[in-house]
Amino acid sequence: MAVKSIMIVGVGGQGTLLTSRILGGLAMQGGYEVKLSEVHGMAQRGGSVVTFVRYGEKVAEPIVEEGQADVIIAFERLEALRYAHFLKKDGALIVNDWRIDPMPVVIGTAQYPEHILEDLAKEHKVYKVDATEEARKLGNPRVFNMIVLGIAAQHMDFSKEEWYQVIEHTVPPKTIEINKKAFDIGYTLK
């Protein structure tokens, strides 16, 4: 199998790290070599955050290069736009239809771009979901990332049971059920 390259992008504090670790655990469980690259420290404080996951028979570099991502999972619209050029031709872009204004927008020195999803859909295969709203309905807006991950799972090579197993291992015990429910919503979304 050729190496699969996945990116998770979002805003510091949205749970990109946890999501990449779930993906990493999954690929390892599947018997692949896995490398992940994370962001810690200053950049985590509300900044733009990107993590990389690569798996396959043999993986050298831990980063995903421009033009080489099979899947990008974006937890926020502007971040989807920021990193979309990393996608390979026919790569899948999964976007949480959610807006968090960066500070230059908040203080009025920059504009938040309009029509991001429409523009991205002209060039890429875009799958969007208002995951934050869906998660709110489940009772915890923070599990939105599991809904987005559920959609991403439709584009990857692992069974639902394998996903469940790794979710059980990675999230805090008290939140296993709600995380699995959230995952299901994404996994069954057409």
Partner: peptide, 8 residues
């Protein structure tokens, strides 16, 4: 796109 620098 607008920058998203780290913030408090």
């Amino acid at each position: 796109v607008p920058n998203r620098p780290p913030i408090l």
